[in-house]
Each structure stands twice: as structure tokens, then as C-alpha cells.
Amino acid sequence: MTEIWNDWLTHHDQLLGGLWVSLRLAFMALLLGLPAGLVLAVGASSRRRVLRGFIVVVIEIGRGTPALVMLQVVYNGIPVTLTGFVCAYIALALTTAAYTSEIIRGGLQSVPGGEIEAGRALGMSSFDVLRDIVIPQGLRIAIPPLMGFCILMFQATSLAFIIAVPELTSQARSIANNTFHYLNLFVIAGVLYAIVTVSASLVTEQVEKKLQRHV
């Protein structure tokens, strides 16, 4: 235990720097990925068969490709030279869009058909019905699972070490490779991840309870 503590004292600057990169990466990926997920969700609920089929295939490819492979494809596949951080940002945003589209679609679908019908009977356009009735309620229902996904996305940033982004896992690995203190450093990294994720899931639980009360 003391050994782990000593390693923490020696390397905490570098490790906390890594954690900060992880958090920034997750934030950026969600910032771009969540709106894209909403667009895909609306497309996947479209009544036009061709459009819907195309979107569903895009979503399934996005969901079927492991994040690790997505990172490699974006990093090595884009002919323009981009920094690892930007590549990781793009790859994780793509994964986010595909996954959250399914979560959001589930939310949109749980809006009762009678309300949509009422909107149409009142003469509201399909766009108005979507904007005023379906999306506000669907997103609200999707909030807890979306928050759960955000936590998973934060964890997925750990894969960015593979394309040399200096996030937490990458920092822990590089220190461990120099000092051979593998156990200590991965325990520390694990604790840092757990502090963020466990507190985030406690918040999610509270939000879920609060939303349930209001419905």
C-alpha cells in the first residue's frame, strides 16, 4: 500500500494531467456525437423506407465496429495528418452518434402514438409534432440511459492510448514501462477512473429518481 502511495506522490502531476485529457476527450466526443445521435435517431424513425434503411445500416456499422478499430481506422485512414487527439475525438464521436441514436430512438418511440395523432388532428405539421411533442418528451425519457452512456464513453477514452493520446491510461502505461511498477500504476489509474465513474453513476441514479417522480 505504501508503495502505491509513494508512486502516487511521485507521479500524480503526470497522472492527473492524463485524467484531464481523458475528461476533455470525453467532453468533446459527446459534444459532437450527441447531436449527431439525435439526427440519426430521427432519420431511423423516418417513414421513408430508403432513408430509414440507409440510416439503420450506418448505425449498425457504427455500433458493430469496436471503438479500438474505429480509432485505428480514423487515425490511419484519414489521408490528412491530424493530431492523435483530434482523431480520437472524431472516432469516439462517431461511436457516440451510433450508440446514442439507438437510445434516443427508444425514447422517441415511447412517446404515445395518441399524442402524435392529437397533434396531427390539431393541424400541426409533422415538423411541429416532432419538435414540440416527440423530441422534448423522448429526450427526457432518454436522459438516464444517455447519462449511463456518457460514463461508458469516458471509460472508452482509455483506448486512445493506442494512437498515442496522452490520456490517463497512456500516462500510467508509460510510467509503468519505465519503473516496472505495473501493479501500482494500474491500481492508481483504476482508482482515478472509479472516482469519476462511480460518482457520475450516483448522480445518474439521483436524476433518474427525480425524473420518475415527475412523470
Partner: peptide, 15 residues
Amino acid sequence: RSRVGMVFQSFNLFP
């Protein structure tokens, strides 16, 4: 539709 109002069995208010 603007000339026709409709009331449903299940009300269908926007909650």
C-alpha cells in the same frame, strides 16, 4: 384539418 376539431377517447393531452 384546421376546420375540424377532434376529441379522443384517451384525451391525448401533451403531458
